[in-house]
């Protein structure tokens, strides 16, 4: 038995050794530090003086019940509005663009490149121009997009953008949609192009109309693509920080959990910041972990 095992070990060992540095580093800096943050979130380290002890889930309970003006719940609501608008917008635009380009148009490469270019720009840089575009002034004071609406006599479209207390986060999602729809388009284009031509031809032979072809043959084939697009957009949305910091700065009206962590750390309330971070991680994990497991299974089958 031992000779067989040694031979096997000899085969695997070099691979494991090559992988080891990365595994150790990720073990420490991903899993170890998450554990550290989790532990911190269960203590009462609310200032730079350090912790007096373990308080269980008190920090988490406080976030939902004791937070001044319901600040944490407010930040979750903001995140929800942002995520819904951002995901729906980017998904629909990306799908529409892919659909328009899918069967080949003149200048396809050019359109694709232009639709995709915002992806290369940082949120900090695009935040500069979006803050200008989403100027909250109206009427004679209208600037940015409102100015265009004003000059085109479309005054009813003028709005306060992200400074609106109820729907501001929907406006905040516009730059994110601008930036990532091209990415979704690229995903869907590869999905469309991955569908075997025979499938379309078979459907055409059966006399399927254009609508039927898409409804019953093409779109069902795109489900896995749509799923990964949703996952990628969803986890980006939960983590959204740069964009909000550069468009509005850290402000109550547009605060999301990722920004709240930063604000909390500025006051050295480490335990509270850790608790918010853990909730953020949990939100991402409930989506990502099933997806990774599912993905692992699908791959093993193929």
């Amino acid at each position: 038995m031992s000779t067989k095992n040694t031979a096997r070990m000899r085969r695997w060992a070099p691979g494991l050794i090559l992988l080891a540095p990365s595994l150790i580093v990720l073990g420490v800096f991903v899993y170890g530090l998450i554990g550290w943050t989790a532990k911190l979130s269960l203590t009462d380290e609310h200032d730079a003086l350090g912790s007096k002890g373990f308080v269980g889930l008190q920090n988490f309970i406080d976030l939902f019940t004791e937070d001044i003006n319901g600040r944490f719940v407010h930040s979750l609501k903001n995140l929800l509005v942002f995520t819904a608008v951002f995901m729906l917008g980017a998904l629909l635009l990306g799908l529409l663009w892919a659909f328009l380009l899918e069967r080949g148009v003149r200048g396809e490469g050019f359109f694709r490149a232009v639709y995709l270019f915002p992806m290369a720009v940082s949120f900090v840089a695009s935040g500069v121009v979006w803050r200008w575009l989403m100027n909250s002034g109206t009427g004679d004071q209208a600037g940015g997009l409102n100015r265009i609406f004003h000059d085109l006599h479309l005054g009813f479209l003028e709005n306060p953008w992200w400074t609106d207390p109820d729907w501001g986060m929907a406006a905040m999602a516009l730059p994110a949609i601008w930036q990532l729809s091209g990415y979704v388009m690229a995903l869907f284009l590869s999905g469309f192009r991955g569908i075997p031509a025979e499938l379309r031809e078979a459907a055409a032979m059966d006399g399927a109309t254009g609508y039927q072809l898409y409804r019953h043959v093409i779109f069902p084939q795109l489900t896995p693509t749509a799923l990964s697009a949703l996952i990628i957009l969803g986890h980006m949305s939960m983590k959204m920080f740069d964009l909000i910091m550069s468009v509005s700065g850290a402000q109550w009206i547009t605060e999301v959990p990722a920004v709240y962590v930063w604000q909390t750390l500025l006051t050295s309330d480490y335990a509270k910041a850790a608790a918010i971070s853990m909730i953020l991680l949990l939100l991402v994990a409930v989506v990502i972990i099933p997806y990774l497991i599912y993905n692992n299974r699908v791959e093993r089958r193929s």
Partner: peptide, 21 residues
Amino acid sequence: DVVFTLILFGMFIPYQAVMIP
């Protein structure tokens, strides 16, 4: 495959969850 999945998870985490330590 399991190791790969564990590695991959590191790509999705919100970095706030590791930032303090």
